[in-house]
Design a protein around this nucleic acid. Structure first.
Lengths: 341, 341
DNA sequence: CAGTTTTTGATTTACGTACATCAAATTTGG
DNA sequence: CCAAATTTGATGTACGTAAATCAAAAACTG
């Protein structure tokens, strides 16, 4: 049988009440006594029964998720995952609320963040637009003792407690290597479609991509980035336009969302050409395009994992517990047509 | 506040005792009453507080893991993960024991399985050697009501409750496409190193690999499979031998373990040649080889995920609960040198 | 050393469920 | 319609922890 608080009390020669004071860092314990108890805990190998503890506490965690109001499959998927987390709320003792803000709009984000400063939820997760104002607002929250994690896209230089998302530089580098290797010794230009350079994840993907292309695939050159604001319509127009111009585009890297538009443009303007295409985020659209050969590889971040990780981290931070970084690492999925889930 | 058993009692107009009888399917409840209670449960949306239930039950799950005694990094890693699970045992109410059996030895496996039939643990996880005798032994256990999951490698035609491992046909297909695309239009032979055709995972990987090569990369031909029994020494000798012969090997697919030997052979015998190499399982050795360019891509199954999934499934089965298949799906990781964890 | 403050002990209640017991009510069979 | 069987209710204890109260003991203060 695993040891309980009673065993600690017996081992340390103190009362249950004192053990409780030490365990829950309540005041009124002499330093020597505290050490005696802590030693006993270590010696008998006590670990708190979290289930029993939560039951006794009956505590719930009011959490807030701030998501951009973007009309693309990835954000819809993210929304779905948050809703799924809301459905699990009773079991996880969370009480999750989501707030939608306009995409790529630092001001709106700051307004929401400042309001939350008053409300004092147990934790906040946000898809960050990477701007100094946002950083400052987040830092104010952190200073106020409210746990904050960035989701999907990080916030440069801020004090946020954690980032729940993939390593986007690595993602960009991986995309570059795949594209480079798939293209072999071919010479030509690569079109890059991004959402906006205002979000750090897109900037980082581009950075990693450009670095590897430059260093290891000198026969490829990268065209000026197309910013489609993660909007399918806009992406369609811009990509169709780029493909219509004469030039020797032989590859495309779509590092943001709005791939519906990209795929439409590819199907209309590049049927005759054999483009190698790498895109981000597995959605119904990109999955179909991968299967029919329009896209060659998809890099994906699992939104469900990100949301669940964010919740775990926020709860841990709210309780002042340590986070097992290795466990919270979000993996970059690579999908070819053969290993689709 | 989420509803409790008291709320059910009130809603159904019965006593707590009756609610308990219904919830825990105890006898002595009239059919009409049972329905009344079940309706109330549905209407107020009651979900059992698992933490409280476990606390009250104080139940533990004696589980057994049967692992092959193979001296390769993957099996060592798997062992480590099981040990890590043992360390978590108190928190998860599991009581895990591991049994080592000789690798690729159906008879030894059957002996162990039959012994466990007497012992009646709450669940068994095994790395299956794919043989009819083993299948029959597993089916006997299943018939006796003992939950069984196969780990890493599945068991053809058996009644095992679940398979905790990657889709190995998909893995083989993915390897083929990567290799094919990396090689571009090059013509030549592909060497395949396996552990043994006695285990289903290796057979399936080969099957998927061969299918895609044949269908989509006709310029590549597959040499007869080299069976290295997942042993580094044996793998070294066989691969070194294959590379020494004249021929036009331009690619290698290592679908089993023992990659230490493969890497040594590649470094000694293929420095001058530019081989494209795809291997399975991320270990210290394959990681180093990926970084130094000896290996071009690594396909990986996360042993930790597999072990944790197996435990979740065994517990669920022991309690007669349903398993969320989507949650237990083991992903195939693809690592290039850029996205290593 | 009296008085004050701090530390410690003893005890109780609560969380939501499981499980057991015994009495009371209801249904069933003859 | 009575006895037997079945169904239901009432109640208590347990799981391991949290949190609170109040009294007792110990440690300081001047």
């Amino acid at each position: 049988m695993r040891p309980t608080v009673h065993d600690i009390a017996a081992a340390a020669g103190v009362s249950l009440a004192t053990v409780d004071r030490v365990l829950n860092q309540r005041p009124g314990v002499r330093h020597v006594t505290r050490e005696k108890v802590e030693n006993a805990i270590r010696e008998i190998g006590y670990v708190r029964d979290v289930a029993a503890a939560n039951l006794a506490k009956g505590r719930t965690y009011p959490l807030v998720f701030i998501l951009p109001a973007s009309d693309n499959s990835f954000m819809h998927g993210l929304n779905d995952e948050v809703r799924a987390a809301v459905a699990r709320s009773p079991a996880e003792r969370t009480d999750i609320r989501t707030i939608e803000v306009p995409a790529f709009d630092p001001t709106a984000l700051v307004t929401v963040l400042d309001e939350l400063c008053e409300e004092r939820p147990a934790g906040i997760a946000l898809v960050a637009t990477d701007a100094p104002d946002v950083r400052d607002a987040v830092d104010r929250l952190v200073k106020d003792g409210i746990p904050v994690v960035t989701l999907v896209s990080d916030l440069t230089g801020s004090q946020r407690h954690h980032y729940a998302g993939v390593d986007n530089i690595a993602a960009g580098r991986t995309a570059a290597r795949l594209l480079g290797r798939f293209l072999g010794s071919a010479k030509g230009e690569i079109a890059v479609l991004a959402g906006s350079m205002l979000v750090r994840d897109h900037r980082e993907r581009l950075e990693g991509f450009a670095a590897v292309i430059a260093a290891e695939f000198p026969s490829l050159s990268i065209l000026p980035v197309i910013e489609g604001r993660d909007d399918p319509e806009m992406a369609y127009m811009l990509v169709a336009d780029a493909l219509s111009k004469k030039g020797d585009i032989i590859g495309v890297y779509s590092l943001g969302a709005g791939n519906r538009g990209l795929i439409r443009a590819l199907k209309e303007k590049a049927v005759d050409r054999s483009l190698t295409v790498i895109a981000h985020e597995l959605t119904a659209h990109t999955r179909a395009a991968l299967l029919d050969g329009t896209i060659d590889a998809i890099l994906n971040q699992n939104a469900g994992h990100e949301v669940r990780s964010a919740i775990r981290v926020l709860k841990a931070k709210a309780d002042g517990l340590a986070v097992i970084e290795a466990q919270e690492r979000i993996r970059l999925d690579i999908f070819l047509k053969d290993n689709l889930p």
